[in-house]
Every structure is written in C-alpha cells, then in structure tokens.
Amino acid sequence: MPWANTVVETEVPEWGRGRTVWHYARLVPGHGGTALDEDFLSGLVEAVPGALHQLSRLSLDRVYLACTSAAFTQSDRLAEVTAGSQVRVVSAFEAILVQLRECDARKIALVTPYPRDITEVEVIQFAERGVLVTGSASLGLADGYAEVTLNQQAALVDQLGKEAVQQADAIVLSCTGWPTQAAITMLRRRLGRLVTSSNAAIAQHALGSAREPHR
C-alpha cells in the first residue's frame, strides 16, 4: 500500500471479521512524495517488486496492491513487475471488478477523491472491462484523502444526480486512502443497492465472497 496510507490497516481487518490475517508492506515512490500524480503512481508500481521481496518469506495466500489508481493507470507496467511473483497479486481495481461481476452489477455510479483527470481514466478503464459508468463525481484532491468526511462523500453522491444513481446497479467509492465504512452503511440504507469501496472489495475478495461488507 502507499506509504502514507493509514486507512487500509483500519478498514480491511475489520471487514475480514477475524477470518484473515493481514501483513503490510509500504510502497515508497522514488521521489518520496505523496501527492497523486503521474510520478507518484508510476513510482508506486516500480516499488512493488521491493514490497513483494519484503513479504517473500511469509506464507501467503495472496498479495493485494492497495492502491486503486495505480492499478488502473499503470496496468501494463503492473503486469510486468508482478509477472515473476510466486504468489498471486490482485489489485484493488481488480477486486472491485470481481465483486461487481459476481453481483451482476454492470452499471455503476462512481465517486472518488481523485483529481478529475484520474477519475476520467477510471471511467474509461471500467468501460473497457464491460462496466458502464452512469455518472461520476470527484473531490479533485491530490492528497489528504484520510481527512475526507462522511458529509463530503454524501455530497459527492448527490452531485451524481438522481438519474445516474437510479440507473446504476452499484455505487463505487474508489480509493483505498479515504475512510468508507460509515459511507457504505449510510449509502446502502439510503439508496437500497450495492455500495462498495476499494477496501471493502479487497476484504470481500480475500474472504471469497461478493457480499456487501457488514458492520
């Protein structure tokens, strides 16, 4: 996971319901920054082999890349750097796709904290994998995702508009770096449909279940 990410270690174990044991390695980009830009994303992927080496002496069932945006913006390079891994590497973006497929959710409404151009790339990447994005909204932030509030997330969903939400089979809160447990609970009750996030999808993938996370 990105070296400044403090949310993964909070959310994923709670959703694991005591059935999984998690080990962590931090990805530090070469320039040592934390703002989401091209250098940061490519730097995270380049750091993956070193992280895999840190974990190589552990008996693992799977390794997850807990950065959604690095996976969908650097997919080809990620495949190259993980090709020699002795354990399967699953990205947060792939985990979301698996959950959507198993729930037969082919249309989604997408909300992110990312800069708008990164969100637009994600919309395209979903479409290329057979998932239609009915609407998207983003906070336009390059950093500070852990401080995003529930009210901000609710406002993002409101920005989508009623039609986009009604047409969607699921709502996706993309990014491992912002807290989503409370948002998932609130939005599921309010909207009455599947709501998932990057961290929720990782946890559910590890559990071998596409069900929504429970509190």
Rank of each mutant, 00 (worst) to 15 (best):
M1E: 02
P2Y: 02
P2I: 05
W3K: 06
N5T: 06
N5M: 00
E9Q: 07
E11W: 02
E14G: 00
E14A: 14
W22H: 09
R26K: 15
L27H: 01
L27Q: 06
D39H: 08
D39R: 14
L44S: 13
V48Y: 00
A51M: 08
H53I: 06
H53V: 08
R62G: 04
A70M: 02
T73D: 00
Q74V: 06
Q74L: 04
L78C: 02
E80N: 05
G84Q: 13
V87T: 15
E94T: 04
I96Q: 10
V98Q: 13
L100C: 10
R106Y: 00
R106S: 09
L110G: 13
T112C: 01
Y114W: 03
P115C: 10
D117I: 12
D117N: 14
Q125F: 04
A127N: 11
L132Q: 10
A137H: 09
A142N: 09
D143M: 10
E147Q: 14
L160S: 01
G161R: 15
V172F: 04
C175Q: 00
G177I: 03
T180H: 01
M186I: 04
L187V: 03
A201Y: 14
A203R: 07
A203Y: 02
A206D: 11
A210S: 15
R211K: 13
R211E: 15
